[in-house]
Design a protein around this nucleic acid. Structure first.
Lengths: 189, 189
DNA sequence: TTGCGAAACGGAGGCTGCCTCCGCTAAGGT
DNA sequence: ACCTTAGCGGAGGCAGCCTCCGTTTCGCAA
């Protein structure tokens, strides 16, 4: 199954073979550079890493935002299918498994998200992909009475994204705090 | 009562009267510039706003980090005394009132925090000030059996800071999600 | 009040990175 | 093979970061 994130990504790739190769090389170089040097990694450095000229970088990605969000789009495409694999679990454990997976994703994508304009249509589309993936699991857990009824999938993604994207003193603190957030999502006993 | 954050700030001010005036003008200009233009506001612009030369800015704040963290230090000094006013409330309402105040603070300081190196000793000192302020309230609520026993003040500040610092679709979503986080802090019923 | 030492000043200049534009190259279709 | 045009690289203009140096001015002691 091809996700809508993958489709959006495909629409951005140029038609010509040489240009496609450069586009892909730039995305790889950018992902690596942002991971190594943070969101302020220089575009000149990214062009050098991809072995293309700076004009080529700008032709493919007219702004830094465009580059960052296309890298993020590729990452979202990779995670969108995970929710499909959780149908065999009970409602609450399935929901929590998805949250955990999403938390792991959000933690590693924090750098990219810091670099994206929050009003970007592409970011909105990525959110849509993630909401679509998690919504069935949330509703199933709410119908089962396990998750509070007053939160939406948007709320849930926002909560886990902010908590998972924070920097922690150690992994134990991180697990503890995500646990607190998940406990807050439970229906009152 | 003079807080330790105010003391740290005082230690950074120059001795000479003209230099003190410039230092204060730079802090004010920086706070305004970061609020207007984000954490990437240009230092040249800040110097112009403060009506000093760029050399003066660098003499007072050798790096961008130094400037940002000094601005943040001033903001922390302003909030540190709030916890002292909550002794008259019941344990859990006092704790929640402090969390709400801290959440409001964290939301407006997000821009500054984005610009500070997380390993900065000054940031560590600011955290220390905030922990010292909230710790008595947390312990009181835990002794009263209202807050789960497995979280520390560090955990609590980290949780609220990440949730409060996020960007929300509307204020209602923000209140809802902070509510979820606070509910997660309650002891199990 | 005056004189002195040094703290503090402003901004020119070197450097890097962002971004545009243009002459040149090469991919792809007929 | 030829032609059109998509795509190329990098020079150059600009802004901002940051340092350094000649000049000014503050504060203290006599």
């Amino acid at each position: 199954m091809i996700s809508s994130a993958q489709q959006l990504l495909g629409e951005r790739r140029p038609a010509r073979a040489d240009a496609r190769r450069n586009f892909d090389a730039l995305l790889t170089a950018a992902r690596d550079a942002f991971a190594d040097d943070g969101i302020d990694a220089s575009l000149e450095d990214i062009a050098r890493r991809a072995e293309v000229g700076i004009g080529t970088l700008y032709r493919n990605f007219p702004t830094r935002d465009a580059l960052v969000e296309t890298v993020y789009l590729g990452e979202v495409a990779a995670i969108a299918g995970y929710a499909d694999d959780l149908g065999g679990l009970e409602p609450f454990p399935a929901f929590v498994a998805w949250l955990q997976r999403y938390a792991a994703f959000a933690a590693t994508k924090r750098v990219l998200l810091d670099g994206i304009n929050r009003d970007s249509p592409t970011l909105g589309a990525c959110r849509g992909v993630l909401f679509d993936a998690g919504e069935p699991l949330l509703q199933r857990a709410q119908r089962a009475g396990a998750v509070r009824a007053d939160v939406t999938i948007e709320d849930t993604v926002r909560l886990i994204s902010s908590v998972a994207g924070a920097v922690y003193a150690d992994p134990a603190q991180r697990e503890r705090i995500i646990g607190v957030a998940v406990d807050g999502l439970r229906a009152s006993a």
